[in-house]
Simulated scan of single mutants.
Amino acid sequence: MIPDNISSDISSLANIMKILGDPNRLHITSLISRQELCVCELTAILGLSQSNVSQHLAKLKSSGIVKERKQAQWVYYSLNPEKFPIIKNIINTLPDISFELLKLNGLQEHLKCKK
């Protein structure tokens, strides 16, 4: 029989893998591991609807993968590496997507959440 603490760790890791199994959530996680972003910035980069991005962020946040910081009416998301250091290893195996963050430079004046 597996001890409870190990069983809990395995279950927690399986849940993380399930959440990151969605390509959009994995993509979002990779982006916010490089830079703190808000929903409107993620929407602009990914080409997804605001509600779709918000739903993905809610799942990532509920699992503890993502943390948020509120500034005025905006919420900014970043990776929570303290909780799940293995996520950094997963992200390091992904292709470099930092060029996508460069899109924001041209879009800054069109975004509602200008930093």
Rank of each mutant, 00 (worst) to 15 (best):
C113Y: 09
S49E: 07
C38I: 02
I28D: 00
Q108E: 10
K18I: 00
S63N: 14
L104V: 01
L46G: 01
S7E: 11
H110Y: 12
A72K: 03
I86T: 02
L48T: 01
G64P: 06
L60Y: 06
D96Q: 10
K70S: 13
S8R: 15
R34E: 10
K88H: 09
K61S: 12
G47D: 07
P81I: 11
T93I: 09
A58R: 13
N52I: 03
S49N: 05
E68Y: 15
N52P: 00
L42E: 05
S33I: 06
K103R: 14
S33R: 04
V66R: 03
Y77S: 03
E41C: 06
N24I: 07
V66H: 04
D96K: 07
C40M: 09
L107H: 01
L37N: 00
A44K: 09
W74P: 00
M17P: 00
V66M: 04
V66T: 07
I16G: 02
K61H: 10
R69F: 08
S30M: 08
N52D: 07
L107R: 04
A58I: 05
I65R: 02
L60F: 07
S30F: 07
L94D: 01
V53Y: 06
Q55Y: 10
L79F: 08
V75I: 13
C40Y: 11
K83F: 15
Y76V: 02
N24K: 09
K67D: 01
E41N: 05
D96G: 07
P3R: 14
I65M: 09
Q35D: 07
L46R: 00
N52F: 13
S11G: 03
G21T: 01
D9F: 15
V75F: 14
F84W: 15
K83H: 14
I28P: 00
D96F: 14
I28M: 10
I90A: 04
E41Q: 13
E36L: 08
I32W: 12
R34K: 13
N105R: 09
S51L: 12
L101E: 02
K114S: 11
I10S: 12
D96C: 09
K67Y: 14
W74Q: 04
S49D: 05
I10F: 15
S62L: 09
K18H: 11
T29A: 11
C40P: 02
A72M: 04
P3H: 11
L107I: 01
L20Y: 04
I32S: 01
L79N: 00
H56D: 04
Y76L: 06
S51I: 08
I65G: 03
L57H: 08
I32P: 00
D22V: 05
L94C: 10
K83L: 14
N15G: 05
F99T: 05
I97C: 02
N80H: 08
I28A: 02
K83Q: 13
N24A: 06
L94T: 04
S49G: 11
A72D: 05
T43C: 06
P95M: 12
Q55D: 02
Q73W: 15
I2Y: 10
I90W: 07
D9K: 15
L104Y: 11
D4K: 13
L107A: 09
V66P: 03
K103T: 00
L107M: 12
L42H: 12
Q50D: 13
D4C: 03
S49K: 11
L37C: 02
T29S: 13
D22Q: 05
S33G: 11
I65F: 10
L26R: 07
S12G: 02
N5A: 14
